[in-house]
Each structure stands twice: as C-alpha cells, then as structure tokens.
Amino acid sequence: MQRVNMIMAESPGLITICLLGYLLSAECTVFLDHENANKILNRPKRYNSGKLEEFVQGNLERECMEEKCSFEEAREVFENTERTTEFWKQYVDGDQCESNPCLNGGSCKDDINSYECWCPFGFEGKNCELDVTCNIKNGRCEQFCKNSADNKVVCSCTEGYRLAENQKSCEPAVPFPCGRVSVSQTSKLTRAETVFPDVDYVNSTEAETILDNITQSTQSFNDFTRVVGGEDAKPGQFPWQVVLNGKVDAFCGGSIVNEKWIVTAAHCVETGVKITVVAGEHNIEETEHTEQKRNVIRIIPHHNYNAAINKYNHDIALLELDEPLVLNSYVTPICIADKEYTNIFLKFGSGYVSGWGRVFHKGRSALVLQYLRVPLVDRATCLRSTKFTIYNNMFCAGFHEGGRDSCQGDSGGPHVTEVEGTSFLTGIISWGEECAMKGKYGIYTKVSRYVNWIKEKTKLT
C-alpha cells in the first residue's frame, strides 16, 4: 500500500490518463441519441435557420407576430419608411378606419389613436360632414345658397324668414311668412316636400332668348283662358290664391305678392273693366268669414305684352289694390325667389296649380277651390304637342294621358313649387288646347323671366 501511494504521488498524470480511459469505455446513459432527441424537440425550422439574422431580410411573422416588435424591426421587413409607417399605425392600436367614419364618399386613412378623412370636392370637416359648395344638395341650405369668396357655403332665406341657429334652416321672422300653410287642420295635408338634388348652379339658368321682337298675326285659340281631375282644397291650404270678379264672377285667378299687390295673367284683364279681388276665398257660393274683398285701382301688364300681336306672350300683369290686405292664416303671400332659384325650383319637376275653373272641358265651374299636382314636361315634348308657338318664356306641365289639367277660369292662378315646406311661385296658368285632352298640356308663363320686374313694381313704400 505504501508503494502504491508513492507511485500516485510521483505520477499524477498517469492516474488522470487511467481515469479518462475508464470513462470513455463506459456506456453513456444520461444523453439520448440524435434521433430520439429530435422526437422530443420537434420544432419547425425557421426561415433563416442556421444563418445569422443580421444578414437576412426581415420576416413579418418572425419579427412582429411571434413577439412584439419595434418600429426598427418592422422597418427591416418593409425596407421602406412609408410602408412601415402605414403598417405601424394599425399594428400599434388597430384600424381606426374600420367603422368607416368618413361621410359623403370620403376616404379614410388610419393613424395612431386617430384617423384622417380625405374629402371629395365640396366637403370638409373631420368626417367630411361639412358642405362647402352650393353645387351639392344646395349646400344643405333649406332655401338659398351662395358661395363666399373663400368658396364656403353661405345660406340665406327669402323675405319674412331668418336663418336658424344651425345656419342652414329657415324659420319665420314674421307672423305670416310667405308660402307657408298655417291653418292647423290643413298642415297635415301639406304636399310632399321637395329635397334639393345635386345641381350645376353655374349652368342652372337656361341660355334662352326671349323672342321679344317676333311679330306674329293673332292666333285663334280655343278655350285658351284655361282644375280638371283635381281635388277639393281645404280652407287655408292655398292662402296665396285669390279669385278675380268682373263682368262675371271667378273669371280668373291670381296670387298675393304682398298686402297691396296681386300677380295674374295679362290676358285676364281689360282696361276700363272694374275688377274686384277676393282673398281668403274657399267656396265661392258661401260666406265663410275668411274672405277679404278689395278693388283694383291700377293694372300693370308687362311692358312687352301686346294682345294685338299675341294674347299669351309675356302673359303676366300686376294688380294694385285700393287697401292693403290683412295677412292671416287664410290670406298669405306666395314666396318669389330670384331668377336663378325660381328656375331651379321649376326644374324640380312638379308643381301645384289651383283655381275655381271648370271641372271638365266646357263644363261647370268649381264651387270649392280645386288643386292638382302636375309634372313638368320637357321642352321637346311640349313643342311636338301643339302647332302653336311655345315661346321661351312659357313652359308645359300636365299629363300625356289627359284627364287632369287646369281649365277655363283658372287662368292667372299660381303654379307653385314647394321647397322644404315653403311654396314659391314658378308659373302662372296661361293657356292650353281644350282641357285635359290626351297628348295636350297646360301652358304656363315662366315666372323666372319676370321676377325682377315683379319685385321692382310691387315694392311697398
């Protein structure tokens, strides 16, 4: 034993070699072989497995989906700052455009905790909710729209109204504003409101030439003092309507412009014939205590009207009353817009006519005020429907199939267009061939041609 100890002390290297040989010859039971080890760690190889990531292109799944990435790591994937920024906006807080917040056709661009709407022409605001041009839906104005110097929408209202708090709607500024039905039992019968379409306001006024200088022999019209197929109006439903009495009662109609003036057809009036105007009328054979009678003290036909040349060209006249009318729910003026808007309103496509005229061709006159909704007829169809001249200051309205029309005794009465609950004068009943005849239409004086003249002559002093 002493000898062994001496050998170990003198030859430590020998001992180490012996131990190493023993270990190498022993069977290893701690580690699995290569094949079995792979069965336990069965993990798919990654895209760049075996390579240094710093030297390969980034992978979106590896960089940002398996674990949260930084902007720089995302930049490695896209290799483009702009594309990385677009991805980053949604990656950080989701897609803010998912709810489609942009209105009126706006395009949404996502941002971090926010979004941006790219608005089409005519709109602005956070969600493109603000109209900035009158060309689109009248700028959301209830009545009139004008573009300011910086191309912003400025709404306005006709006389007797003021802008509401929203700067879009119009509200009454006087007790009985024009064009409004205020009798409670008839307010439910107000005709369907007309909503502004998209309009090209630059070209809204037709490029028409008034044929002022045409000389033409007097034409022989049949029954051209021209509501057939209409309905009984309720008291106060058309408070701007008046009836004219002269040699015979209810020979023509008219509309209240203001307390002192009536507008009617020029062919209705004769110099030297006494005319009485009755406002607030409903049943011409009954006294309903809503009527107001006034005498006409002055007749002003349009300066281009000449019955000797043509009885229905420039067929418009103004009547001055001896005493002002007292405005109330049964006696209310009709609204008159400017030339541009009167023309736009007419193009809405349908209007209402009213009167006490004959209820059928050569038949009896109506006792109760009649009204009828009539569609506008395109000019080409209008011209083809008659052998008589249709001037540019006239328009056609009615039904091709016949059966409904204005008729004798309705002449001078109103053709009105309702705009968001307020009625505007767009025409004056003038003439036609018979009444409600198939293929024939009622012919009306186009008020847009005469609004400046009306307003100039009827100013209240």
Rank of each mutant, 00 (worst) to 15 (best):
N310F: 04
K39T: 09
L52A: 15
M6P: 05
I443C: 03
G254K: 00
F78A: 06
C178Y: 00
C141H: 00
L321D: 00
R46V: 12
P301M: 11
S25M: 15
E288S: 10
I15G: 04
T85E: 09
S411A: 11
Q237C: 04
E323L: 08
G94F: 05
S448W: 02
L425I: 04
V92Y: 05
W453S: 00
F78N: 15
F221V: 08
V242D: 00
N147T: 15
E420F: 12
T133N: 13
N100E: 09
Y371E: 05
E418W: 05
R379M: 14
R379T: 15
I297K: 13
T458S: 09
S107W: 04
R162A: 08
T81Q: 15
C157W: 01
S156T: 12
I429G: 10
E116G: 03
K274L: 06
V278G: 03
D200I: 12
I443D: 01
E159N: 07
E401Q: 11
V331K: 00
V331L: 02
S430N: 11
I112N: 10
C134A: 03
K168G: 04
H303A: 08
R180N: 02
V242W: 00
L20Y: 05
K260Y: 07
N5Y: 08
A397N: 01
N151L: 09
H267W: 03
R75V: 11
D93M: 08
E208N: 10
K362H: 09
T264K: 00
S385D: 14
G442M: 13
L376Y: 06
P333E: 02
V174S: 09
S107I: 03
Q57E: 10
Y161A: 02
N48T: 14
N5W: 08
Y201I: 14
H361S: 13
T85F: 05
Q237F: 10
C141F: 00
D95G: 09
K168S: 04
D410Y: 08
A265S: 10
D410C: 11
E418K: 09
E76Y: 08
L41E: 11
E286F: 10
D315Q: 02
D338A: 06
T386G: 09
G236M: 06
C134N: 03
K438V: 08
D110Q: 12
V77P: 15
A233N: 07
N313I: 10
T209P: 14
Q90S: 15
E86G: 14
G357L: 06
V154H: 08
R404P: 15
L327A: 03
N113L: 07
L318H: 01
T85H: 05
E129S: 02
V154F: 13
A9G: 14
C102P: 00
Q216I: 06
G442Q: 13
D131H: 09
D232R: 15
Q96M: 10
T194F: 11
G439P: 07
S385I: 11
C18F: 15
Q241L: 12
V257R: 01
V353D: 01
R43D: 09
V227E: 14
D338Y: 03
G280I: 02
E401M: 10
Y371V: 11
M65N: 07
I112V: 15
E61G: 10
V377G: 02
G21P: 05
A233C: 05
G432Q: 08
A436I: 12
L318R: 00
C145Q: 03
N313L: 08
R46W: 09
K260T: 02
K168Y: 11
I316F: 01
E142M: 09
